[in-house]
Write a protein that binds this DNA or RNA. Sequence first.
RNA 1: UCCUCGGUAGCUCAAUGGUAGAGCAUCCGGCUGUUAACCGGAGGGUUGUAGGUUCGAGUCCUACCCGAGGAGCCA
Length: 428
Amino acid sequence: MVTIERIGEHVGEEAEIRGWLYNMRSSGALRFLLVRDGTGVMQAVAVRSDLPAGVFDAAGALTQESSIIVAGLVREDRRAPGGYEMALRRLEVVQLADPYPITPKEHGVEFLMDHRHLWLRSQRQWAIMRVRAEVERALCRYLDDLGYLRMDTPILTPSACEGTTTLFETPYFERRAYLAQSGQLYNEATAAAFGRVYCFGPTFRAEKSKTRRHLTEFWMLEPEAAYLDLDGYMELAEGLVVAVVRQVLERRRRELEILQRDPAALERVQPPFPRITYDEAVERLRARGATIAWGDDFGGDEETVLSREFDRPVFVHRYPARCKAFYMQPDPARPEVVLGADLLAPEGYGEIIGGGQRIHDRELMERRIEETGLPAAEYQWYADLRRYGAVPHSGFGIGIERTVTWILGLEHVRETIPFPRLINRLYP
RNA sequence: UCCUCGGUAGCUCAAUGGUAGAGCAUCCGGCUGUUAACCGGAGGGUUGUAGGUUCGAGUCCUACCCGAGGAGCCA
């Protein structure tokens, strides 16, 4: 069996493709079957005079998305989409599909989301998912090559990783458990065991956010490293993002074309990324007319404005402590700000990475847990890490869907995950 | 939770308070190089739900349901 992705290697040969009918056009004694097999789309040409009558009629009776096995001579042809086509010789109908709901015309978001299980078969979704997979592969490869060890962290957790945000709750025998919103705290433990680690998995947020950049279930990759400071973290994140974009440019050109994403915007993603302080970001926002007080966190609008000022991703570092989580290391030179940094993607996309240096001082950590009102008993193990060989360490989380949305220039994160979970969307 | 917009054929959308329509999909027919093919014909409707105003409501009013975009929220 041959895949359409590699059909160019079989010109002049008889080949068999197992797949589905994507679309069909006919012209009297000719029928053009657009066949997809998951790796690509290719047309098979059925000519009445070259085929037994039964085969030609069977081709004519096919419905969109019927599963079929086609075989015939592969040849190059300028007129064929993709440049190659098959002269149909043999056709096997595996299943004749019912009338297919997603017709080759426009559809609304709600209808497509209700048919997400079928929508994934369309060219656009095919291209997006192939890039998503490439992004995930590139992320893991980059960290693996640097000696980072993948450590999978739990999804069922006893309490909030950080008491402030809303968690999904689920029964857990006679108790309650919560779906993880980050693997970071656990990775601070594994980083002390293995030096450099990362986790990669789904995370859950029960916030009732209703915007183009939020999902209730999304995937995040979170590196964490011992003896890494804020500057080291930014250097790591920068190298990671550059490598991911380069790998997509190298291996997923065809997909970028299908999505009409201009590669020039991605080719500009070169080091070094600008690094500006929160203070400077506030000044820039005010120069653009924003009314923002020092100490306020940035909303989506502020991120959009900032990210449009640069032609590549930009780090904003040293946020006011009150904007950030309890475990963030205060800047020794300015205790009112913390050694944290977010990476904002350009073209208005905003935050794709958040992270920073963690508190390693035992007394400070215990004080911060108390101030934040977290249950000390449940954070005992986390505080313990500051008792047994504490070292300065840093880490960050990169959101997969937001990253793919930016790389592909999409409007909404919901198309970058096979089955998006949104506030009003749990089916299919 | 709030603001804005929307809900009419399987889908995408039209319809001045006065006979509910088109394109696509489906079915039938035509076409030997189609590119979301094209051409001809046919079938297809509880206008989101419940009330109200009116001689008459898809259209106006009220409530509710659902969706989209945004705000808030958001390592």
